[in-house]
Design a protein around this nucleic acid. Structure first.
Length: 565
RNA sequence: CGGGACGUGGCGCAGCCUGGUAGCGCACCUGCUUUGGGAGCAGGGGGUCGCGAGUUCAAAUCUCGCCGUCCCGACCA
């Protein structure tokens, strides 16, 4: 084994940030010559980028092999499989027709395919449990690819599927995945959290996500400072502060509130706490007008509202509002209305100011249960600094990149695709399934988002494209070159991957590229070090350059790599 | 799908408002010098200005349409 020569490697680094890149990982990957864009949401991994992907791939494979069996399923799937599970109509699913008129889907994930195989190959409880996985290209017609490789239309995913006889078995497979996932992310040198997540429209029995903190992320999670509560804000709960209620009333009292059409104006005019008001939002779901209420100081969370309503909605038009409530927006409330009313859980107790359904008027002392009878649901968005729902701690809200997810599917797929087994008594039972995904490129991007400085990337040793970057100042045939080759041999013999930069460019270019590419350790061999019998060694992560003897250099380089994950 | 921006040698940009046939930096090629922080000098190559119509004697520049890319939002099994 030997290192890779810089003169033989495609290293198309750029001095300037690409115009259309926003995320740091996107900028650095393009600048460092790791990726190039082919079209919207479509990227080529150049040699440097692909080296990183392969190292991530290897880590995932090594860990997954401890619990599952690797296989490979096709990207192209017959339409029928997707029609049977009802997923054929998903907009993000690419559909195509072959020359004979048959319809196909480009798989966005492989529940259908796995379940198809399970239905044909699994006969008996004696063959369960199973965990099958593959690492393969996924296709999704993303409405809006973004942030470089963070959201693309084609990407490589490790997806695994557990087959169990019952929920107890599923729970065990789920736990085994959690342990394996933690080892994978630990080995990749990422900071991450496991959080409760929404099961999505596919139902299911529960789900978690693995989230890497980064400002480039698309999701937000709520984390408790003192216990292990951690949840995606899509379903996070919290203890809101207690409002300062005005004096209790035996019945609602109508008051004139001219021009007070916002909570801020209303609370200001009445001189009360915004949290002592109820904010009304009028929505339309399938043409039905529905009134949603949250506390005045809260914001409605759109996904929570969607779940409460049972599907997609739109804001009602002013005409619909006037027709339904007999008053204009800004004076709408729940008392005496014919429409469906859904109130946030915070409104169960206490008396709130709400619209009177008479333009320019509000009601004081409105009480759920007494004055109106809503459905209750969790509708409010959790905010940074609120109390933890499980303990006395405080929640903080952090932006994150989703680097993996795990779902308890139950029989969602096995039922429609007839994946069953015979139990001890000869009864046919549906297989209980789980599905588990990791996006390789997300790991790569998250590692950069979490490890970079002004000069470039700072890779964890475990997934770096090269672990050691040798800057050789001198031509082939020089004394520097000979010493560098000797060091290269020792490093590679010790299992270290080496980029031997022998390019015919100035030293400044080599140093700049070394920092951009971000190998965790850099060795510099020049005339000066040769005359002293030394090598200059530098850890990429903010460390001073040290001078060491040629003999000690490999060992000291190894030591730096050990520290760097 | 709604909103915004952009599209000019490989990359980053200027020129457009006020029409007159394209320029700068980097990169690239050749030669010489240089070699511990994105080298110097000299010479050189490369662009039907995203595409299509229109206005005009004349369009990178004005008008209309389309396409592409990015950003915000919606969406994200």
């Amino acid at each position: 084994m030997s290192g890779v020569r810089g003169s033989q490697l495609l290293i198309p680094t750029l001095k300037d940030d690409p115009t259309d890149a926003e995320a740091i990982s996107h900028k650095l990957l393009v600048r460092g010559g790791f990726i190039r864009q082919v079209g919207s949401g479509l990227y080529t991994y150049l040699p440097l980028g692909w080296r990183v992907m392969r190292r991530i791939d290897t880590i995932i494979r090594e860990e997954m092999d401890t619990i599952g069996q690797e296989m490979l399923m096709p990207v192209l799937n017959p339409a029928e499989l997707w029609q049977r599970t009802g997923r054929w109509d998903i907009e993000q699913l690419y559909k195509l027709t072959d020359s004979s008129g048959k319809h196909y889907a480009l798989a966005m994930t492989h529940e259908e395919c796995v379940t198809f195989h399970a239905s044909r190959e699994i006969r008996s409880y004696k063959e369960l449990p199973q965990i099958w996985y593959h690492i393969q290209t996924k296709e999704r017609d993303e409405p809006r690819p973004k942030s470089g490789i963070l959201r693309t239309r084609e990407f490589i995913m490790k997806d695994s599927y557990s087959l169990d006889r019952d929920e107890e078995g599923l729970e065990a497979s789920y736990q085994r995945h959690i342990e394996v996932y933690k080892r994978i992310y630990d080995r990749c040198g990422l900071e991450y959290w496991m959080v409760e997540s929404d099961v999505g429209m596919m139902g299911g029995l529960g789900a978690h996500e693995f989230m890497a903190p980064s400002s480039a992320g698309e999701d937000e999670v709520a984390l408790c400072s003192s216990c292990d509560y951690a949840a995606n804000v899509e379903l996070a709960r919290s203890r809101p502060r207690t409002p300062q209620f005005p004096e209790r009333l035996d019945a609602p009292k109508q008051i004139e509130t001219p021009g007070a059409t916002t909570i801020e104006a209303l609370a200001g005019q009445l001189g009360i706490d915004q949290a002592a008001t109820a904010k009304a939002m009028v929505l339309s779901r399938d043409g039905e007008v529905v009134l949603l209420l949250v506390r005045g100081d809260d914001r409605m969370h759109e996904l929570k509202a969607t779940k409460a309503l049972g599907g997609a909605y739109r804001p009602a038009t002013p005409e619909e509002i006037v027709a339904t409530f007999g008053a204009e927006p800004g004076s709408i409330g729940p008392v005496g209305v014919g429409a469906r009313v859904i109130a946030d859980e915070t409104l169960r107790e206490g008396q709130y100011v709400s619209g009177a359904n008479r333009t320019g008027f509000h009601l004081l002392g409105v009480e759920a249960g007494r004055d109106y009878s809503p459905e209750f649901a969790d509708l409010r968005e959790v905010r940074d600094g609120e109390g933890c729902p499980d303990c006395d701690g405080t929640l903080r809200v952090e932006r994150v990149i989703e680097i993996g997810n795990i779902f308890k599917l139950g029989t969602k797929y096995s039922a429609p695709l007839n994946a069953t087994y015979l139990d001890e008594s000869g009864q046919s039972q549906p297989i209980v399934m789980g599905s588990y995904g990791i996006g390789l490129a997300r790991i790569m991007a998250a590692a950069i988002e979490q490890g970079h400085d002004d000069n470039g990337m700072i890779w964890p040793a475990s997934i770096a494209p090269f672990q050691a970057h040798m800057v050789v100042i001198g031509d082939a045939g020089s004394e520097q070159f000979a010493i560098a080759e000797e060091l290269e041999g020792q490093l590679t013999a010790g299992g270290t991957s080496v980029l031997f930069d022998d390019r015919d460019v100035s030293p400044g270019v080599k140093f700049a590229d070394a920092e951009l590419i971000g190998a965790p350790v850099r060795l510099t061999i020049g005339k000066r070090t040769v005359s002293e019998g030394t090598v200059d060694l530098q850890a990429r992560r903010g460390r001073e350059q040290i001078s060491t003897s040629v003999r000690d250099a490999p060992e000291r380089a190894q030591a730096i790599l050990q520290e760097g994950a």
